[in-house]
Amino acid sequence: MPRCNDALAGMPLAMAYVPWQPAFNDTFPLCRALQNGTIFPELCKPFCGRRGGCR
């Protein structure tokens, strides 16, 4: 049974905004992509220790 006092009734649940991204030209080979978790070198951001400093 729907509630009459629901202020959000009938409104959409969510709306996503995804900006257009440029196409990446180079990709990792599949073996390296599996190790890095991405096929795109631009998205490969390895963890470098505490507080962003490599040790």
Rank of each mutant, 00 (worst) to 15 (best):
Q21E: 09
G49I: 03
T27R: 15
F24A: 13
N5I: 03
T27C: 11
P29K: 07
C44Y: 15
P12S: 07
C48D: 09
Y17F: 15
R32D: 15
K45C: 09
M1F: 01
T38N: 01
P41I: 00
G52A: 00
C48K: 14
M1A: 08
P2F: 01
T38G: 00
L34H: 13
R50H: 12
I39C: 09
F28Y: 15
A33S: 09
D6L: 03
L34E: 12
A9S: 08
R3C: 11
A9C: 08
C31Q: 10
V18D: 06
L30H: 10
A7G: 02
P29F: 04
F47S: 06
C48R: 14
C31I: 09
L43Y: 02
P22C: 01
P2H: 05
C54S: 13
P41E: 04
N25L: 15
C44V: 06
K45T: 09
Y17L: 09
Q35K: 10
P19I: 01
F40K: 03
M15Y: 04
M11D: 04
F24T: 12
T38S: 02
L8C: 09
R55S: 07
Q35E: 15
M1E: 12
G53D: 13
A7W: 05
K45M: 11
G37Y: 03
L34S: 11
A23D: 12
F28R: 03
